[in-house]
């Protein structure tokens, strides 16, 4: 098991955003997390990638304890272990967050060299391979501002993959894109799924979730309401909340 969380809880002030999330992700699995806005999907990803701290619960990544419980409070591992864990995960943001001052290729090389200490020529080779895979080889020396949203997002995926993460998280990777550009990102994610990349994808693309995910998780109001295969969740769910959400979605 690559990721295991137990009873994660997180509040922002008085707003209880995560109300006990228990989740397991196996190697090679693709999980889609769906649910209405404000249901805590993004917060969950942000907690798993150390961008937010949970209040309660445990998180284990690739067998290493990231957060444990001491009585009533969550206790984080020390910084060295947290750094080790962060290198096992990658995150693709809704709005890409490429470094605008770096060229495309440097966006992919830089962390390899500075964070992993990989030799520059090897990092360059790897970056070019990834760009080739993303069909962006000719954009290597461009700057992010010169690329379309879809191209920027593909660079962001390459940047994350360059560090060989065990799990790749996607936080609504197509939400900031024009509808005609979402296809190219979904295609990339599909090809990663074929290569058995472990991925957790927060998405509003229901057809895509149904198609690519091994398991679908429906979240609402800070809890996992339903979890199952795409057929179970989309096909014939017996859960009223899921039904209502999917119906509302189909109307739009």
């Amino acid at each position: 098991m690559l990721l295991k969380t137990l009873n994660l809880q997180k509040s922002f002030g008085k707003t209880h955003v995560l109300k006990g999330i228990s989740l397991e992700v196996n190697e090679g699995e693709v999980i889609a997390i769906i649910g209405p806005s404000g249901s805590g999907k993004s917060t969950l990803l942000r907690c798993l990638t150390q961008l937010e701290r949970v209040d309660k619960g445990t998180i284990e990544v690739d067998g290493i304890q990231m957060v444990g419980m001491n009585g009533e409070k969550a206790v984080y591992a020390d910084n060295k272990i947290l750094h080790e864990i962060i290198l096992k995960v990658g995150l693709v943001f809704q709005n890409f967050n490429l470094f605008p001052n770096f060229s495309v290729i440097k966006n992919i090389i830089h962390a390899q060299v500075k964070v992993l200490g990989i030799e520059k020529s090897l990092a360059h080779k790897k970056a070019m391979e990834l760009l080739e895979k993303m069909n962006l080889k000719e954009k290597a020396t461009s700057y992010p501002c010169e690329l379309s949203g879809g191209q920027q997002q593909r660079v962001a995926i390459a940047r994350a993959l360059a560090l060989n993460p065990r799990i790749l998280f996607f936080d609504e990777p197509t939400s900031a894109l024009d509808p005609e550009l979402t296809g190219e990102i979904l295609k990339v994610i599909r090809s990663l799924a074929k290569e058995k990349m472990t991925m957790v994808i927060v998405t509003h693309e229901m057809a895509f979730a149904r198609d690519v995910a091994d398991r679908v998780i429906f979240m609402d109001d800070g809890v996992i309401v339903e979890e199952g295969t795409p057929e179970e969740v989309f096909g014939n769910t017996s859960n009223e909340r899921t039904k209502e959400f999917l119906q509302r979605f189909n109307q739009n």
């Binding site: 990638t49 150390q50 961008l51 750094h83 962060i86 290198l87 995960v89 990658g90 995150l91 943001f93 967050n97 490429l98 470094f99 962390a111 500075k114 964070v115 992993l116 940047r159 994350a160 560090l163």
Partner: peptide, 9 residues
């Protein structure tokens, strides 16, 4: 900052 943090900088 968030992108840099997740990349391990």
């Amino acid at each position: 900052y968030e992108a840099a943090k997740v990349l391990g900088y």
